[in-house]
């Protein structure tokens, strides 16, 4: 069963009651919330995700609850609660859906220390994947969304999950977080896509959430071998251009973009070395999405031919 198999009222009832249990890649979540717009958001964004049963193992038990006391009624707020803890300040109630997304990211980034976690988008092609680490503002999410809508499988828009023991990447296939100008860019790029939002005046500006393609969700259990590391940078009107990057430089840049490199210690260093042994690193400048996608397809094609 997938989330879309539940009627809107059944979905709302689960969220308001014992919780909606569903999986995204290797993690299972239980979400509880009385917020109606959250139910609607989850129904649209997580439609293709598989449900989990009452007897299954759940990794993270979370809730989006109404603000305390007056904040339930006056300029209402919502709170993110994970198994009794409240790691964030409350947010305006109309940001319930982005708050859930940030909260789930927080759970994974904070607790999944069996994996090396990089702040990077990951997209798959067959058994291989490209890892795209980049700081905010580099156009990573926009490029990630465009690739995911052009035949690449979405693993994640901002959490690369590398298993240090196997060197393989786990996917999540969760909604893509689009910010500010990239919202209209993607809407123009693919007018038919399902987007929730925009949510105005969040701590990250205006954000919107893009539903992951159903094909990516269906293929999420497939573990991929990292084959390319690409550091993207959007430069207005620039022609798409890949420049090779020295492995040592790439290693430092990857470590810099990691959530828990400092916790992994030796395991993390070895995992990044192994990653770069198998995946050449590139800098990538682009000004137009179509050109960028052609460039990525060529990169993938070169390896497919060689193989």
């Amino acid at each position: 069963m997938i989330v879309a198999d539940l009627s809107p009222s059944a979905l709302r009832a689960r969220l308001a009651g014992a919780g909606l249990r569903f999986a995204a890649g290797p993690f299972a979540f239980r979400v509880q919330s009385p917020q109606r717009d959250l139910a609607e958001g989850i129904g649209r964004l997580y439609a293709a995700h598989p449900l989990r049963g009452d007897d299954d193992f759940i990794d993270f038990h979370v809730a989006i609850l109404p603000g305390r006391n007056l904040r339930r009624f006056v300029r209402p707020q919502v709170r993110f609660v994970v198994d009794g803890l409240e790691p964030f300040k409350p947010l305006p109630a109309d940001q319930a859906m982005p708050m859930l997304e940030w909260g789930l990211n927080w759970c994974i980034a904070g607790y999944a220390n069996h994996l090396l976690m990089l702040h990077a988008a990951v997209l798959g092609r067959g058994d291989r994947a490209v890892v795209m680490p980049a700081p905010a503002g580099s156009g990573k999410s926009t490029l990630c969304a465009a690739l995911a809508l052009s035949g690449w499988d979405l693993l994640s828009d901002e959490l690369a999950l590398l298993d240090p023991a196997t060197g393989l990447l786990h996917g999540l296939a969760r909604p893509i977080n689009l910010k500010n100008a990239s919202i209209s860019v993607i809407r123009r790029f693919a007018p038919e896509v399902e987007v929730c939002g925009p949510y105005l005046d969040t701590t990250k500006g205006t954000v919107a959430l893009l539903r992951p393609p159903a094909g990516s969700v269906a293929a999420v259990a497939r573990l991929r071998r990292p084959a390319w590391v690409v550091f993207p940078k959007y430069v207005a009107d620039a022609p798409a251009r890949l420049t090779p990057m020295a492995p040592a430089e790439a290693l430092l840049a990857l470590a810099d973009n990691a959530f828990n490199y400092h916790i992994q210690g030796q395991h993390g260093f070895s995992a990044l070395c192994a990653l770069l042994d198998g995946a050449p690193a590139w800098r990538f400048e682009y000004g137009y999405l179509d050109e960028a996608i052609a460039c990525f397809d060529e990169l993938a094609g070169a390896v497919e031919q060689a193989a």
Partner: peptide, 18 residues
Amino acid sequence: VPEVAQVHLLAGARLAER
């Protein structure tokens, strides 16, 4: 120990190691 639980134990051990 089921794999789904084992990974959380391992995550705890990694943090402790560090």
